[in-house]
Structures are given as structure tokens and as C-alpha cells.
């Protein structure tokens, strides 16, 4: 299972790097979504993969009974997903705003904040 997840993470990262190298910023943020999922998977796998019940404490007991899953990475991944979701929503709005105000999605054409200096004229 670890090997499968490792390969999945690798494929996700490779795909996202390919996407992020594109000049089109929309592709870039799709790459960003994939790579953030890869990072979430890394955290998930870091907590070790064990076959266990959900870590819920039954009524009356002081601790979970039997084999339970590691709850910490799940909490971390949940947090990371939420944050990633917020950032993605923001980035998407920003890209749309860029498209309407700058009229382009190509990073090479985005030169308003840093205009090209005239070539030795």
C-alpha cells in the first residue's frame, strides 16, 4: 500500500510540475491543486498506514479500544485541505480578475508591474 501511495504521490508531483511550467496561469493553478494534494498524501502516509477502526472513544471508556487509526495526520490533512481550498478559491478569483483586467492569462504578457525597459534606445 505504501508503494502504491508513493507512486501516486510521484505521479501527482510530476503532473503538477508539468502543468506549473506552462505559461498559462490557469494551468499553473491546476498544477498547484495537484501538488497540494500530493503534500496532503505525504502527511497522510507519514502517519503510517494501519488497518484500524476510527479513533473514537466509546462511552464510558478512558481511551480507544483495540487497534485504531492514527488521528493526528487526519486532523492535519483536514486542516491542510481546508486551507488549500481557501487558497485555491482565492487564486481562482485572482486569475479571473487578472483575465478581465489584464486581458491575458499568459505570464509572459503580464508586465504591468515590471514594465520592460526600452532596449538600449
Amino acid at each position: 500500500m505504501e508503494a502504491l501511495l508513493a507512486i501516486t504521490i510521484g505521479v501527482l508531483v510530476a503532473t503538477s510540475v508539468y502543468l506549473m511550467l506552462a505559461r498559462n496561469v490557469l494551468r499553473f493553478i491546476f498544477g498547484l491543486v495537484l501538488i497540494s494534494n500530493a503534500a496532503n498524501l505525504i502527511i497522510f502516509v507519514s502517519g503510517r498506514l494501519t488497518a484500524g477502526a476510527p479513533p473514537l472513544i466509546p462511552e464510558g471508556a478512558d481511551g480507544p479500544v483495540g487497534d485504531v487509526a492514527n488521528a493526528l495526520p487526519q486532523a492535519l490533512v483536514l486542516t491542510a485541505i481546508v486551507i488549500g481550498f481557501g487558497l485555491f478559491a482565492f487564486a481562482l478569483v485572482l486569475m479571473f480578475r487578472a483575465y478581465t483586467t489584464l486581458g491575458t492569462l499568459y505570464s509572459d504578457d503580464m508586465r504591468i508591474a515590471e514594465p520592460r525597459t526600452e532596449d538600449t534606445t
Binding site: 481557501g86 482565492f90 481562482l92 480578475r97
Partner: peptide, 14 residues
Amino acid sequence: GSILSIVFAMEEEI
């Protein structure tokens, strides 16, 4: 609140 602000803003923009 934050989900609705984002969604409303996006809806109104597009």
C-alpha cells in the same frame, strides 16, 4: 460566512 462571501463574489463577477 466565508464560503458564501467567496461564492457570491464569484457569482456576481461571472
